[in-house]
């Protein structure tokens, strides 16, 4: 199998979500893309086959409501999300949204609290409370993942279950270059966390498909209400993501000036660099 020119070993070694079972009609082939390569997905009942153009099969697994595959014969293990085992939680998947940007930019936007008052005005933030308090960023060396903890932000309507404004607590987990999970305070169950996450399918270096999920204790809202809340937020983000220049992510700190509020983004870019990621990032000549 030939690898695209800029595909680095770390990006190549990951498992990627291609969609939910129901996204692939039973018994009919679906064409998709991953890392600038064509793939065919065929579902027969609960069995999924993913093949390359010449028919060579790729391994698959069903996890977190999605179908995953990898191009690697020695893949980096797909991370655990223990909360998926908790039976009282509801899983709502929001489907696939195509975005013309690097999947890495989509991850970074999801990590970012400072945009809430401006992009999600009146929902996740208000301009009068735009301050981002200091939060902690740490590396889980054993699992090679990043955590941002003790994040706090004032929100008028933090979630579909929120009745009034207040300070919401967040944690963010980055276990994979194209996955990001947000843990936020759960209004009906103080002490528990609701999860919202993205599983991104990088189709090209500057185009991606964002698969997302909500895993919550909410009993009041219908699936449709939770889905609408997520889709509304995500479509507001897409206006930003499709208008960042360049479309690929710059890893050189001099190309985009960070502040303290960007501590998680700084850690993410450093982590990508340390893992030798070049796919979907800025290269010499891009910024001319």
């Amino acid at each position: 199998m030939t690898m695209p020119t800029h595909l680095d070993p770390f990006t190549h070694a990951q498992w990627y979500a291609l969609g939910r079972d129901e996204d692939f009609p039973d018994g009919r082939k679906t064409q998709t893309r991953l890392l600038s390569q064509d793939l065919t997905v065929l579902r027969r009942g609960r069995t999924i086959e993913v093949t390359l153009p010449q028919g060579q099969p790729r391994p698959t697994q069903h996890r977190y409501g999605h179908v995953w595959t990898t191009f690697s014969d020695t893949p980096r293990a797909l991370y655990d999300i223990p909360e998926f085992e908790e039976v009282e939680r509801r899983l709502i998947t929001a489907g696939a949204v195509h975005v013309r940007c690097s999947g890495l930019r989509a991850v970074e936007n999801f990590l970012d609290m400072a945009h809430f008052p401006f992009v999600h005005t009146g929902i996740l933030g208000v301009e009068e409370h735009a301050e981002v308090e200091k939060y902690d960023v740490s590396m889980d060396v054993e699992r090679d993942e990043i955590w941002a903890t003790n994040c706090m932000f004032f929100q008028p309507v933090a979630a579909a279950t929120a009745k009034a404004g207040g300070t919401t607590k967040y944690k963010y987990r980055l276990p994979h270059p194209y996955s990001v999970i947000l843990y936020k305070t759960c209004p009906p169950r103080p002490g528990e966390w609701d999860l919202i996450g993205l599983f991104i399918q990088p189709t090209e270096e500057d185009v991606c498909i964002v698969h997302s999920f909500v895993l919550v204790f909410d009993q009041d809202n219908t699936d449709t209400e939770l889905l609408h809340f997520q889709q509304n937020i995500f479509l507001q983000d897409r206006i930003i993501l499709e208008n960042q220049i360049p479309r690929r992510l710059p890893l050189d700190m001099r190309l985009e000036i960070p502040t303290r509020a960007d501590a998680s983004s700084i850690a993410f870019r450093r982590w990508l660099k340390a893992n030798g990621v070049t796919w979907s990032t800025v290269r010499a000549g891009d910024m001319e």
């Binding site: 970012d112 401006f118 301009e127 206006i239 208008n243 960042q244 220049i245």
Partner: peptide, 22 residues
């Protein structure tokens, strides 16, 4: 800051505010 197109920004008096992070 993060490469957002400033043409999406908001002009108030004689200052331009970026849509992304203000």
């Amino acid at each position: 800051h993060r490469g957002m197109r400033l043409s999406y920004g908001i002009v108030r008096k004689n200052r331009l505010t970026c849509l992304y992070h203000g």
